[in-house]
């Protein structure tokens, strides 16, 4: 019997998700033993035409990481969806937009103008911007188009499962493979991680007082964190209460507060709004001046509360542009 075919692909991402696959360490041998990897650009050489040539649904599962920003990423997402029985959004960027989605605070024009004209470290006298088609030295390369906004994978194509994290942990990845190969998959649309917030598995949970009553907020570089005490009790924003568990409380064990990469629980529509509602309601000051002073400790609310979830959030984009257009 031929081994089931599996594909890995990356879109707008940093490569960290690929690292996790490698981090499976010896377990990866078990995976390789059981499956045929038919696409994995980070490790092996494949051509698009090879993928296009595969019969539809011939890949059992594609683990796609990264958000969708360019026309190329969109094309590959559509193509892999067609070729795969299961399409799995792998990691925070594919699931929620991730760090790349913070760019949704700015319009396409703002981004291009800064990066090709205004950036202080740039030398580009002609203010040349990337072109989809151009000719130079007898060649006519074709570049992908830069879309208006960053999208999650499920804003582009139908997604079967999600493996959360920035990056997902090897443990969750292995569990997903086991479920996939063992045919023990949960209902479609599930996030393959526990559906309870991080505090549940955080060792500091017991040290959170009943009434945190925030009087100030500090960022991790502004104070030495007590390695045993709940970060919120220390006045540091910790996304734990609004973030799905399953990472083994990796950051809080390493004395850093949770930044929310596992995304919200299934019941939450907007992770940032939820933690905002909770934190702000617990600010001790009840007068405007006092509230303003306390919240001044969070200079970048979007980057703090929507670090991974901006594309998936219910917030409108900087400019309400069509999701698929390019602004022209």
């Amino acid at each position: 019997m031929p081994k089931p075919k599996v594909a890995f692909y990356w879109c707008a991402s940093c490569g960290g998700c690929e690292e996790t696959v490698v981090d499976l360490a010896e377990d990866i041998l078990g995976v390789v033993e059981k499956v045929d990897i038919v696409l994995w650009p980070v490790a092996m050489d494949f051509k698009y035409k090879d993928v296009a040539a595969m019969p539809d649904k011939s890949i059992v599962a594609t683990l796609l990481n990264g958000a969708i920003r360019t026309s190329e990423q969109e094309e590959l997402a559509v193509l892999l969806r067609r070729k795969s029985q299961y399409l799995i959004a792998y990691g925070a960027c594919a699931q929620l937009g991730g760090i790349p989605a913070l760019a949704n605070q700015f319009s396409r024009e703002q981004i291009l103008k800064f990066n090709y004209e205004d950036c202080p470290a740039l030398v580009n006298e002609k203010k040349t911007r990337p072109q989809i088609h151009f000719e130079e030295a007898g060649r006519a390369p074709h570049l992908p188009e830069f879309r208006n906004v960053v999208r999650t994978l499920d804003q582009v194509v139908d997604v079967d499962f999600y493996i959360p994290g920035c990056p997902p942990t090897p443990k969750l990845t292995k569990a997903a493979f086991d479920a996939l190969l063992g045919g023990k998959l949960p209902p479609k649309g599930s996030v393959l991680a526990p559906d309870i917030a991080l505090c549940d598995e955080c060792e500091r949970k017991a040290t959170k007082p009943t009434n945190v009553a925030f009087t100030e907020f500090k960022r991790p570089h502004q104070a030495l964190a007590d390695p045993t005490k709940c970060f919120l009790a220390q006045g540091m924003v910790c996304m734990g209460p609004a973030t799905r568990s399953g990472c083994g409380a990796a950051c809080t064990s390493g004395n850093m507060p949770c930044t929310g990469c596992f995304g919200p629980t299934s019941r939450v529509r907007d992770q940032g709004a939820k933690i905002l509602s909770s934190l702000c309601a617990n600010v001790e000051a009840k007068d405007e001046e006092g509230i303003r002073k306390t919240l001044a400790g969070i200079p970048d609310p979007v980057g703090t509360f929507y670090r991974y979830g901006l594309a998936k959030s219910i917030l409108r984009r900087k400019v309400d542009l069509a999701m698929t257009g390019n602004g022209h």
Binding site: I196, A197, C199, K205, A206, S245, A281
Partner: peptide, 28 residues
């Protein structure tokens, strides 16, 4: 409270104007 889903973060407890929310120390 959805018991299985509650992480025990206690965010809700001080906010209740009627002090109707308690923390079950046994089940956290």
């Amino acid at each position: 409270i959805l018991e299985d889903e509650c992480s025990g973060c206690k965010s809700c407890i001080p906010l209740c104007p009627y002090t109707a929310i308690l923390f079950d120390e046994g089940r956290k």
